[in-house]
Design a protein around this nucleic acid. Structure first.
Length: 197
DNA sequence: GCAATGATTTACT
DNA sequence: GTAAATCATTGCC
């Protein structure tokens, strides 16, 4: 079942980040479906320095984060990697959840060919830049409505208990000062698909 | 208009 | 463990 707009427009971005664990991200690329179970997320908010929209700084790139939740925020990092975020909260509150790792589910052959691999292994989708390449997400998917028919997130019926969800410091944002120490990274305990331990 | 830089990955020492 | 790859976005001139 596709997640509703009500889910994405909740105010608590960290709660949404936790709820997204176990959900299934589905992407339609070249008329084929690819999907995977979300096992790792990070929360970002305009209230802290790790976020592109920190201090309500509005730019052409992050404009989509200032709109209503339920839209995709895709952008290029380090000139090489596409990162996929889910915009949350209501219009005017720029918050988003970064999807960092998935467990491959459907369309695995397509993922392998896009990644230039021949066998399914941990490195297929264990990282934010890797999973977008595996699913076929690129900048063309930016600002897409997650209630549309190209890219969406489903409830698979998986519900992790609090014991199965771990929180830790976010990765790769040392420049954010003390905000870099917020425990806003959420992972599924013991999942073999995490980007790092 | 131009220089600096990053929510990463990969390869090499 | 460290460093290079590589370019859109950003901020400043």
């Amino acid at each position: 079942m596709k997640l509703s707009r009500d889910f994405y427009t909740q105010k608590n971005v960290t709660a949404i980040a936790k709820d997204l664990l176990g959900k299934v991200i589905v992407c339609k690329a070249e008329a084929k479906l690819s999907s995977g179970i979300i096992v790792e997320t990070e929360a970002y908010s305009f209230k802290e320095r790790g976020c592109h929209a920190y201090n309500n700084k509005r730019t052409a790139r992050n404009e989509i984060m200032f709109g209503d939740g339920g839209f995709a925020y895709v952008y290029l990092c380090y000139g090489i990697h596409h990162l996929f975020n889910v915009v949350t909260n209501r219009s005017g509150c720029a918050e988003a959840v970064l999807v960092r790792a998935i467990e491959p589910l459907q369309g695995i052959e397509g993922m392998l060919s896009r990644r230039g691999m021949s066998k399914v292994k941990h490195s297929l989708s264990s990282g934010p830049g890797k999973l977008t390449q595996a699913l076929g997400i690129d900048i063309a998917y930016n600002a897409l409505d997650l209630l549309g028919n190209k890219l969406w997130i489903e409830d698979s019926g998986i519900n992790y208990t609090r014991k199965q969800i771990q929180s830790s410091e976010r990765i790769g944002i040392d420049y954010a000062g003390s905000d870099a120490r917020l425990k806003w990274r959420f992972t599924v305990k013991d999942s073999p698909w995490l980007s790092r331990v």
